[in-house]
Amino acid sequence: MPKVPAFDELFHHSQESAVHLEMRDGYMRSDPAFIDWAAGKELDPVERWSDWLATVKKATSRGVVVRRARIVSEPVSDYIRFEHSVTEGLNIDAGEDVRWLPRRQATSLALPGNDFWVFDRRMALINHFDGDGDSLEHEYTDDPQLVSFLSGAFESVWEKALPHAEYRLA
């Protein structure tokens, strides 16, 4: 297995695109931001996620198109409600384009078993999680067949998904 480059390094070296497919209904429920949101506290994306905002803004300022698609079960989980509530101030304000696809509409799509990022349609970072949604490890690949499959899976979701501004939580 090739050495896994640092995530910000992959973003730094991207020239055209970075796409991310999320397919879980919950991630890192021990995340302090999620816990604070669930307790009704106001979240300031600039304060909480300044590194992420800076990374994406640097990439998009160089012309890199950053897209994120989320496949979600409906009715949505509390974690998805949390993600939806911070998407505008976090992802979109950083320069990402975000879309949502209800899981029922994904049945006909050939999808991989794991979430992933694809950079410039040449490199992929596959995300492995435990059953509670905590990150276990990242797997890097530049295998052309696998990257092509992942890119195609992302595009098939993207075509069916609703832009963030149009998606209403069920």
Results as ranks from 00 to 15, higher is better:
F149A: 12
R81T: 07
D120I: 06
G89M: 12
E74Y: 10
L101A: 12
T141C: 00
G113V: 10
R121F: 10
E88T: 09
S148R: 09
S151K: 05
S156L: 00
A94R: 13
E155P: 02
N114H: 09
W117K: 00
G152V: 03
L136Y: 03
R104N: 10
Y79S: 12
G89K: 09
G152T: 05
W100R: 08
D132Q: 08
R103A: 15
L125T: 04
I71M: 07
F119Y: 08
L150A: 00
A106G: 08
L90V: 14
Y79W: 13
N127V: 12
L111H: 04
A69W: 05
L136I: 12
F149K: 07
E139W: 01
F82C: 06
E159M: 08
R104Y: 15
A94I: 13
R70A: 06
T141L: 03
R70Q: 08
D115I: 02
Y140V: 02
G113C: 04
H138M: 06
L90M: 14
D142N: 08
R103H: 14
K160Y: 01
W117H: 03
G89W: 14
V98R: 07
R121C: 10
I126P: 00
H84R: 12
A106D: 09
W117T: 03
I80R: 07
F154T: 03
L146A: 05
G113T: 14
S156C: 00
E139S: 05
S108N: 14
E159R: 15
S148V: 00
S148P: 04
L109P: 06
S151P: 03
D120A: 04
M123A: 12
F149D: 10
R70I: 11
S77K: 11
D134L: 07
A106N: 10
E137G: 01
P75R: 13
G89A: 09
V147S: 03
F149M: 11
S73F: 13
E83L: 13
E88A: 15
E159F: 04
F129E: 01
P75Q: 13
D134A: 06
V157C: 01
P112Q: 02
S73M: 14
E96I: 12
H84Y: 14
S77C: 12
